[in-house]
Design a protein around this nucleic acid. Sequence first.
DNA 1: GGCGGATGCGGGTATATACACCTATTCATG
DNA 2: CATGAATAGGTGTATATACCCGCATCCGCC
Lengths: 134, 134
Amino acid sequence: MLTSECICTHLRRAARGVSRHYDEALEGFGINVAQFSLLRHVRRLDQPSISSLAEAMGLDRSTLGRNVKVLEAEGLLALAEGNDLRNRLVILTEQGKARVLAAEPAWEAAQRSLVDNLGEAQRDELVRLLEQLA
Amino acid sequence: MLTSECICTHLRRAARGVSRHYDEALEGFGINVAQFSLLRHVRRLDQPSISSLAEAMGLDRSTLGRNVKVLEAEGLLALAEGNDLRNRLVILTEQGKARVLAAEPAWEAAQRSLVDNLGEAQRDELVRLLEQLA
DNA sequence: GGCGGATGCGGGTATATACACCTATTCATG
DNA sequence: CATGAATAGGTGTATATACCCGCATCCGCC
């Protein structure tokens, strides 16, 4: 009976499995799906602060700071000082932009194979439900 | 446009957020939702091996072994030898059973507040979609 | 009975994630 | 302007997660 099933457990399991699917597709580009997502968020938000980026991604600030550090060491992200002496801006380097562009077709293939298996209507429904959860 | 959104990112974000919701509810019981789920799986499967438990949960074997170790140190799980000298059985201790029982009402409250916000039809739809992804 | 593949696990290493706490800076307000 | 609250980050610690590799054991087959 559905009532006895933990929705959170289902979500976590699905997130793990789907992450593996995308990670497999991204193999060879030197980034995993979490990093791919982080890079794309930075590209979209254009020099966000650590906090605003964390907020946008629904991540703890400290988590995001550490994730950024990994990509900074790879030369894909850089940190610059903002107006405020407190905050720092996350910047997508040229190398970072190139890496995202290079990986995007593989990401798209992974996404497509998933949507093929789901159908577009169910994909939309899934995304809608996930957004409602957040 | 939905096509440009990463389903995996959505899933991961939702999993994080919902996990936080359940973790909050489980605060005070000394376990988080991942551990709660692990304990319940052990209870349901009744002395599974590490591998079969990992398989059932969609987790890597080594991950599961480490997660078990944490709960073993807390006295909630124990490891026994199976028929085979290779495999080990994961056992829910009396303390572990008691902990799950104690935490279950809090888990249920968290689940209920989530379902209240979602509606039962959408809950069923969500679970169905998540299972289809796995 | 021995040998090669299969199976079950643990450990090394790395990233992802969160919370609690600390520091530095900024801001609001008296 | 001084002081306390609010804000931005970093660090310490702990768990979650995965992949790779190595070791022990088992099993099928000759």
